[in-house]
Design a protein around this nucleic acid. Structure first.
Length: 261
DNA sequence: ACGGATGTTATTAA
DNA sequence: ATTAATAACATCCG
């Protein structure tokens, strides 16, 4: 489930499990998952290396190596996930890339639909989306957010939130969720938002992302008062009205016609 | 059985 | 120059 909160969790998981161990072997069955290197180069560059640090930028993980200036950069697509197993554990399916450590632990890179990518680059700017990425929402103050909105005021608010070049890390689930909390209809044009609307979008963006991170860390399901928990029954958790599904920015979009204008 | 899915990009149209 | 719409990518799930 890789939007900002999920990838933030992957980052913490990676940090906890996979730093400071020598990589004994790298397995990869499908070169689709590796960008700008072929499989043998990818294996060669990483074998005997040590993951030194990991940070998150938008929906990407950026990993530094102890004895190399290369960056390992990971994007998880729609179905990417991380898993760490020890010798006697089975592990899940779709572990298309596996980093085998000297101490017999294994970091597994799962990706069922194969939309994710691993890059090995000298400069982060070689990855165009990273190069053009908008600011981190959790490091953005309200004034900067507000002037960002001005830059894209002809667009629908959801389209702005989804566009990684406008603002980083927000995807289809969290954009719907934060607009629900803010009481704004997803296809509303930014230029038609009042100052109060803008402030609510900002506040709800922060709170939904932060609660999302907490939620995942605690291993909880999405809370029952979140819109996302009602995609099946289609009942708004505020007023029990029938939710609607429309298409915005090419993506399936859920909202409550009563609560959201 | 077929439409849709937490993402991104290329192409084409407005 | 911007923005929107659509299809494509690969694969499984309901």
């Amino acid at each position: 489930m890789p939007e900002l909160p999920e990838v933030e969790n992957y980052k913490r998981f990676f940090e906890k499990t996979s730093l400071n161990q020598k990589i004994k072997n790298v397995y990869c069955e499908d070169d689709l998952l590796i960008d700008n290197k072929n499989i043998s180069e990818f294996k060669k560059e990483l074998t005997d290396e040590v993951f030194e640090s990991v940070k998150r930028r938008g929906k990407f993980l950026i990993i530094t190596l102890e004895d190399s200036d290369l960056f390992l950069v990971q994007h998880f697509g729609m179905t990417g996930n991380l898993e760490y197993i020890t010798e006697d554990e089975e592990g899940s399916d779709y572990a298309h890339i596996r980093f085998n450590f000297k101490d017999d632990g294994e970091l597994r890179w799962l990706c069922r639909r194969k939309f994710g990518r691993n890059y090995l680059v000298n400069e982060l700017s070689e990855i165009s989306l990273l190069d053009e990425m908008g600011p981190e929402p959790l490091k953005l103050d309200y004034n900067s957010f507000n002037s960002l909105l001005d830059d894209y005021s002809r667009r629908a608010i959801k389209s702005f939130l989804l566009d990684q070049r406008c603002i980083a890390g927000i995807g289809n689930i969290y954009s719907d969720e934060l607009l629900f909390r803010a009481g704004i209809k997803p296809d509303k044009k930014i230029k038609s938002l009042t100052n109060e609307d803008r402030k609510r979008v900002y506040d709800c963006m922060i709170s939904v992302l932060e609660e999302g991170i907490e939620n995942i860390i605690n291993g909880d399901d999405f809370p029952n008062d979140w819109l996302f928990s009602h995609r099946n029954d289609m009942k708004c958790p505020n007023d029990n009205n029938e939710m609607k599904n429309i298409r915005v920015s090419g993506r399936s979009t859920y909202f409550c016609p009563k609560c959201q204008e």
